[in-house]
Amino acid sequence: MRNLIMDLILTYIGTITFGVLLNVPRRGLNIGGWIGALSFLFYRLCMMANMGIAFANLIGALIIGILSMQAARYKKMPVINFNIPALVPFVPGGQAYQMVKNFALGNVSEAISFLLQVMIISGSIAFGFLLAEMVNRVQARLMLSVSSRWRHEHRHNPRL
């Protein structure tokens, strides 16, 4: 439990600082950090419930995608300001490193098994984003038909 809380704090810091490296505007940094920490919490919960690494990454990416879109609408900033920093804790860095190391040291079969893990993780992140995109489009369509204020606000707004 203490480990989990510690990890969440570290994820928050890591997300914000990665945002600084990408030159994310100052007003978007904090909310990006919260998105990173929250999606990482759900990822960890899925891992604790033994749902498998693919499903956990998919859930994490899905939550990042949905929350980033809400943040983008709220802050009126492009969505990449939020979802790229928030994705950093999900990068399969450990597996990618083990793959490179084993290739370099000549353990090809182990390297290929790590390569497969990297592919599984990145594939599920991509599909998580795809699902999030679908949720966002459905939401936009629903809001357009339900709320006249929404229709007015998004009349000629640039894409988020």
């Binding site: 570290l10 810091i13 890591g14």
Partner: peptide, 22 residues
């Protein structure tokens, strides 16, 4: 851009925090 010292500190923090998280 963010000033270089802030970028350097950020890079350090990214490395340290993610090392612990991973």
């Amino acid at each position: 851009y963010f000033p270089l010292w802030l970028q350097l500190i950020s890079a350090g923090l990214v490395s340290g925090t993610l090392e612990v998280v991973f």
